[in-house]
Design a protein around this nucleic acid. Structure first.
Length: 468
RNA sequence: GCCCCCAUAGUGCAGAGGCCUAGCACACCGCUCUUUCACGGCGGCAGCACGGGUUCGAAUCCCGUUGGGGGUACCA
């Protein structure tokens, strides 16, 4: 049995779309599940739409997601000779023909067909020869579709599909500029590169019969087809820019974990069959296979992605989470943090992060004394007894054993003497030490902050309270 | 217009004729835990698009309708 080979074949025409990333993830997962190979091929056959930098963006994106490829990237623009020779071969065999029809004529023809309520398509004027033209003049090469019968093929997601040949266009294989079209180059390369499973989204379904005919014309065995449905925006149309963030790069920059995004992408149009959802990369590879791919389109749901990201953050060991969060903090000017300290911060904050960078906003008081006091908590300092109370707590803690249990005992004891308990005891202390009205368990937070910071902040807040 | 695909709660999935009084998850709403906000736990809301068949029996099979999507380029 030969190894399974899949490929990801994007065109470098702009930012990599989140939908492309999903297709790439499916193809990669399928290859890895079966111990096969995953190939990267850049389909740069449209010179007019080429966007500088997009090849790099595609590769960076795949690397970020952890989708490593075994061969490539191959560039179709470097294989022009191959396509030309193969196209000429088909011309010689009478399975393709030269066409000199002008784009203007073609456009007009299409309009007339539409107006008459007919199916659109090339009228095959040059199919039986075009007197007065020579191969020296600019022309395209078209495939000569069978004029009757049907083309049938099996798709692993859709089942057996059949299309009437008469309705399929004599499509262009080679353009006037010598570049191949997708329809042609794609088939040639999939064959030459030994692709066994073509994984691509639904939008290609209706051109698959053309591909099947091309394989037949060359006498090549067609690959297995796998067409997952499209990803839709909330309005149910093909996900695009007007739905907000759709470029893959935006997601990598928003603070999603690669494993979380991979998990989410895999779940868009596939399921393991049981009710598992939160899955590691390894679990995905083990579970992913064709039968789990669903045949109806899915709407992209950010809330679910966010939830998945939370789950993946919580799965990270503290040390690893600390390591990932560190550069984000340094970026905000919170440098020079001890690993051990950062790890303890991360431990108390872990359950509260949707994104890694949330830590900056939610836990800044762990990294600097210069945090802001939320306006909302001002009342805790305005209270007449506040200054005296905070000083009292500071005194009680200045020689306290530093564990959260000991801190709690000492604070409660001191609170009792000062006539405070419950919220009136806890909230002012939190506000004094963190500037916030919400956060992790107070005693755990104090323990993590350390005695010096806590005592210092309590006294500072007491001073603040006195001027109120 | 023509061709093709799709149809289970708001969203993502499970379901491959009886196990379905349709399950799970996100979101939402309660309750609970708790010093707060989260987390967690418990509970709730909400769905087989519609109409015909086939069958003893249909979410599951067939046909039609409706709705949605994709394609229809010398773009991919």
């Amino acid at each position: 049995m030969s190894t399974l080979r899949t490929r990801f074949a994007p065109s470098p025409t702009g930012s990599m779309h989140i939908g492309n990333a999903r297709t790439a993830a499916f193809a990669w997962l399928l290859a890895r599940h079966h111990g096969g190979q995953f190939i990267l091929r850049i389909e740069d056959t449209d010179r007019t739409r080429y966007v500088e930098g997009s090849v790099e963006e595609i590769q960076d994106g795949l690397k970020w997601l952890g989708l490593d490829w075994d061969e490539g990237p191959f560039f179709q623009s470097q294989r022009l000779e191959i396509y030309r020779e193969l196209a000429e071969q088909l011309v010689r065999e009478g399975k393709a023909y030269r066409c000199w029809c002008s784009p203007e004529r073609l456009a007009q023809m299409r309009e007339e067909q539409k107006a008459a309520g007919l199916p659109t398509g090339y009228d095959r004027r040059c199919r039986e020869g075009a007197p007065g033209h020579t191969p020296g003049e600019p022309h395209v090469i078209r495939f000569a579709m069978p004029l009757d019968g049907v083309t049938e093929f099996h798709d692993h997601v859709r089942g057996t599909l059949s299309f009437e040949n008469a309705l399929i266009d004599d499509f262009v294989m080679l353009k006037a500029d010598g570049f191949p079209t997708y329809q042609f180059a794609n088939v040639v390369d999939d064959h030459l590169m030994g692709i066994t499973h073509v994984v691509r989204s639904d939008e290609w379904l209706s051109s698959t019969p053309k591909h099947v005919q091309l394989y037949a014309a060359f006498g090549w065995e067609p690959p297995q087809f796998v067409h997952p449905a499209l990803i839709l925006g909330p309005d149910r149309s093909k996900l695009s820019k007007r739905h907000g963030a759709v470029s893959f790069r935006e997601f990598t920059q928003m603070g999603y974990l690669p494993d979380a995004l991979l998990n989410f992408l895999a779940l868009l149009g596939w399921s393991p069959g049981d009710n598992r959802e939160v899955m590691t990369r390894q679990e995905l590879i083990e579970a992913f296979d064709i039968p789990g791919i669903v045949n109806h389109p899915a709407i992209f749901d950010r809330q679910k992605l966010d939830w998945l990201n939370r789950q993946h953050i919580r799965m990270l060991p503290d040390g690893e989470l600390a390591r990932r969060v560190k550069p984000l903090l340094e970026e905000k000017g919170f440098g020079g943090l001890q690993d051990g300290y950062l790890e303890s911060v991360v431990r108390v904050m872990k359950d509260r992060l949707t994104f890694l960078h949330d830590i900056v906003e939610l836990a800044c008081y762990f990294f600097t004394d210069e945090f802001e006091y939320e306006e909302k908590g001002g009342k805790w300092l305005q209270d007449p007894g506040a200054a005296q109370f905070l000083e009292g707590i500071a005194d009680a803690l200045k020689d306290c054993e530093w564990s959260d249990a000991a801190i709690e005992a000492r604070v409660r004891e001191a609170g009792e003497k000062l006539g405070r308990e419950g919220g009136a005891l806890i909230h002012p202390i939190r506000y004094a030490c963190t500037g916030k009205t919400v956060g992790p368990s107070l005693f755990a937070a104090l323990e993590t902050l350390g005695r010096d910071r806590v005592v210092r902040r309590l006294r500072r807040a007491a001073d603040l309270a006195r001027v109120q």
